[in-house]
Design a protein around this nucleic acid. Structure first.
Lengths: 340, 340
DNA sequence: GTGAAAGCGCTAACAT
DNA sequence: ATGTTAGCGCTTTCAC
């Protein structure tokens, strides 16, 4: 069926070794020989058989990206960034969805498909810090993403959660807002995005000399629009006063904005709002939503680079690396300074 | 390094053929033998080498999904549905983004990676009907998605665009709306989602005995939020009166809603709005957006099934099949009947 | 600089 | 119902 190296070799009048050399950019080939081979390849429309190459070399040119869900804009945009970064390196990406389920996350990373990829980009959600040891027996090169596992057995790339939340809070403080809601907390969580972002919020308040008010913490079950909405409803019902909202992701901010608007609260005049993640949608809502851009492209590029390095030298016992990408405060209408 | 079939065979005291038989669910194996092999597999933590299997059998267990962009919620949700459908069939999915670019779409489908997958799910955007012949030389089994190429050389799965748009329009007509805007038209396009949906809109008007008014057609350059917004601005500036909007996708509807709300138009009281695609976000906007659910899961499942059949019988010259999934009108606040 | 030959781990004929 | 054997197409020593 398909043309093989032998066909190309015959066409070019060389051995298959020479064809292989040309394909793999082996430097010491006479220019003329190389040209003949390349002509033959073009003429026959030859493509190397990736299975054969994979069998022989142990490399497939495919990496796996495990994320909770693609329907979530944050992960869709992350996947986009990862695919572009991987593409530049000649790698294809197989995406696997874990639905944020602990069992499925473990199943995936130990599954058959993972044996067949060169490396794994693993955005953990269901697993926690205590599960880090469960990843120790994963032999495939792996880079962890997200906030669930720090100091695990592998390289780790993520954003500066605490600093980002601190900057978001400071952004509202700089406008004179003093009663700032933190929306999206998870009860009792210290690590994980919610815990880290709450810490950043508290740090900003402390540095500004503002007392922490428990009543301004809006808790949610998950980071969805609906949760932002219901948490904001509770806050409004409680009667607590506030003039700013730092939401721990954009969807929560959007859900909360909707509820506030229904209640006749003007944004940003009455309440300034800033979200987190800088998903595309923030540019198009009413009002447009200020946000923290987490350094998505940097995360993707560094993660792919780390992974490539691990793949290239699987035996080198380099200690796990940690990379925190640079974030950016993006100011939009929802936190624009009100006219004096 | 990794354990092979030989290791398993030795451990179980059988030949590798028997191991292969067990793995591939060959029926005629003694239960006891099968058990011994399975125990050995579990004990050694054996996983078949997919490259070797691929080399030998010509199947990789991987299909490719080519879509314009993952950041677009419609395609993210489609990819999600496809991955779930493929997963059920034991297939992994490599996603490739074309950015809707004609050259890149062609490049991808003819590229090296496509030779290495069992089949291609190809959501065309840049190519047109006249380019169908460019796909004839694609030997990998392929199923087309989307509205650009009908009657191409491969199976084709998509939604009922015309009927969906007609139903959307009828939904507004049933509420007594008579001046209905069609938002999202592409000048001169007949085929393609925009053309088909415009046709459905016109059919609904004609059947209701309402004259088609050119001034109620809102044209856009692309189906983005920003385009919906600017097209709606033009309509408002033009001074034309209307009481309903059928938007050709949800993002356009959302962009338009924002502009109308800024202009003080109440939805649905003054203007009823219905979109297309039923992306997750429609459940959370203010007001929630009515939409046409295109039968996403059905599209994904049928497409994967078609592809699997083509992969299983690559030589059978079955003529290209066409499947149009069932859609559904989802009524939400944006087109709720106003209180009398 | 280029060629010859071995073999990666598996499946599919064919044997038994 | 299970074993033997021959490659799939490539990369990789090792010669020359």
């Amino acid at each position: 069926m398909a043309t093989t190296m032998h066909d190309v070799a015959r066409e070019a009048g060389v051995s298959i070794k020479t064809v292989s050399n040309v394909i793999n950019d082996y430097p010491y080939i006479r220019a003329e020989t190389k040209q003949r081979v390349e002509d033959a390849i073009a003429k026959l429309g030859y493509h190397p058989n990736l299975s054969a190459r994979g069998l022989r070399s142990g490399r497939t040119g495919v990496i796996s990206l495990i994320i909770p869900v693609l329907r979530n804009a944050y992960f869709a945009e992350l996947a986009d960034a990862v695919m572009r970064a991987a593409g530049k390196e000649g790698l294809s990406v197989i995406i696997e969805q874990s639905d944020g389920d602990r069992e499925r996350e473990l199943e995936l990373v130990h599954g058959a498909r993972m044996q067949a990829v060169d490396g794994i980009l693993y955005s953990v959600l269901g697993l926690g810090e205590d599960d880090a040891h469960l990843l120790e027996d994963v032999t495939t090169p792996m880079v962890l993403l997200g906030e669930r596992i720090f100091h695990g057995p592998s390289d780790h790339v993520t954003m500066q959660n605490t600093e980002g939340a601190k900057a978001a809070t400071q952004h509202l403080l700089a406008q004179g807002r003093r009663r700032i809601v933190a929306l999206g907390a998870h009860r009792g969580e210290v690590i994980g995005s919610a815990g880290l972002r709450l810490t950043g919020y508290q740090q900003a308040l402390a540095e500004a000399g503002i007392d922490f008010d428990e009543r301004l913490i809006g808790e949610v079950g998950g980071w969805f629009r609906s949760e932002g909405a219901s948490s904001m409803k509770q806050l409004l019902d409680s009667g607590v006063e506030f003039d700013g909202v730092v939401a721990f992701n954009d969807l929560i901010a959007l859900g909360a904005m909707r509820v506030m608007q229904e209640a006749g609260i003007r944004i940003p005049d009455d309440v300034a709002v800033i979200g987190f993640d800088d998903i595309d949608e923030t540019r198009y809502t009413l009002p447009t939503l200020s946000s923290i851009e987490p350094g998505r492209d940097e995360i993707a590029e560094v993660a792919v680079r780390f992974l490539k390095e691990r793949i290239a030298k699987p035996d080198v016992e380099l200690p796990p690396r940690e990379h925190l990408s640079a974030f950016r405060v993006v100011e939009r209408e929802s936190s624009a300074v009100a006219a004096p």
